[in-house]
Design a protein around this nucleic acid. Structure first.
Lengths: 237, 237
DNA sequence: GTAATAATTCGTCATTCGTATAAATTCAAG
DNA sequence: CTTGAATTTATACGAATGACGAATTATTAC
């Protein structure tokens, strides 16, 4: 959106020439283009759409408007690019969860189950509705959680385990009648539900014959919280 | 396992020659080898591990012990192979769900929510624990449900929609105080939870610090049913 | 100023991919 | 028997892929 003049010149030459045209010449540019971020942003959307194996480095470079070699320059390999994409926003998300939990605990009175659950869900739900990038990350997240490969597991663990375990601790205090392992198990039920909701609105439309359509972002979250809190508090089987 | 004599001869030549050796000669074999099924089985496991884009036709052919061209002969394209893999077991599964629901309804008394939910979950839960192929299909299923691509959506819809809608109808009768669209929404919460559980036992171990380890297949299902039934019956938000 | 370093594009290489065609062998129908 | 269809391997093709080396230009340090 910024260097429109440069682009225009490039297009002139493209018309005179033949095929593809790159927006920059080789060599270090005068105005630092913050191209690393541009690559990360493009990769986030691309990986969300096609998954790790479904997207080529060339495709990402093209979407970012950048030469393919620059990706190697900043990230070396495709895998490291993926990891950085994931950790970038995952770290923020995990941090946000910690903050909301702190805020709940500082309020004095012991938090209710539905408040704890809401605090857990809120950050990513907001992120998902914050625009294209947030929605893409939600999608990516959902993908990674159905990936059995060792590397994907490590990545998730690294980014999320600490905050999830804190939430389990707080839930355990709010539900003293339940053994901790039951709460851990139910916490992963919860994660399953909301991972699914991060990416599956098309299918929900089908199941409800379009009747869900007008549910707003907040109403949807309210519904999720009600469902999950009831499940979390259920009598043991 | 059968044509061991042929294989031995082939291996002789492999030693004399250089690299790879195929177990069969060109041309129609004497004993029909049921190779189509062997391909489907190998593809099921391969796609579960690597996803559609992560697995090559060559890889599947090798796993099946079959020439690559045979896959084209039976399935034409990679995509059609994937579809057949998915529909084969998906169709059985959907059928099984219909049967269990029929049985519930025929029993005379109105079914309880937890019975309906258990009937829905049981078939795939059994399948998942029936061996390598069942587990692979569960994994595949989980993958497909995080795939945003149009084709994946159509496939799921085609295989499952009818039975899911029947379950929603029956749940609506058991829960007259809830509007149907709430039940549809909660049904997709349910699908999310159990898709996640079909593939994520590694992560659960982490969250519960190994305390889940000794939960048997049946106990795990009981826990899921208790959680989901409570959520399904929750007061509206 | 000159040298080192940072950021960028370009061209290339070996490999792998999905698909396609041809050839070989066996079975079924007449 | 002969012929034609069915099942199988072998080989080839062009396109795409991830990675890499080299060239080019700007900035910073001395």
């Amino acid at each position: 959106m910024d260097s429109s003049a440069t682009v225009a010149v490039a297009e002139d030459k493209a018309v005179k020439g033949e095929k593809k045209k790159s927006a920059r010449k080789p060599g270090r540019p005068k105005n630092n283009g913050k191209l690393k971020e541009k690559i990360l942003n493009a990769a986030e959307i691309a990986f969300a759409e096609g998954g790790y194996t479904g997207i080529s480095v060339r495709d990402i470079a093209e979407r970012a408007g950048v030469n393919q070699g620059l990706i190697r320059y900043y990230f070396d390999t495709k895998e490291q690019l993926f990891d950085e994409v994931y950790k970038r926003r995952g770290g923020l998300l995990s941090g946000h969860r910690h903050v909301l939990l702190d805020r709940l605990l500082e309020s004095g009175k012991p938090p209710q189950v539905k408040d704890i659950i809401r605090a857990y869900l809120q950050p990513q739900w907001d992120l998902k509705h914050s625009g294209e990038a947030g929605a893409a990350f939600a999608q990516l997240q959902s993908r990674l959680h159905s990936e059995p490969e060792e590397h994907a597991l490590r990545l998730r663990k690294e980014v999320y385990d600490a905050s999830v375990k804190r939430y389990i601790d707080v839930l355990a205090q709010a539900l003293p009648q339940l053994p901790r392992r039951t709460i851990g198990l139910r916490m992963s039920f919860l994660v399953g539900t909301y991972m699914f909701m991060l990416n599956d609105l098309g299918r929900i439309e089908d199941l409800t014959e379009g009747k869900i359509h007008h549910l707003s972002k907040d109403e949807m979250l309210d519904n999720m919280v009600a469902f999950l809190a009831a499940g979390m508090e259920a009598d043991r089987p």
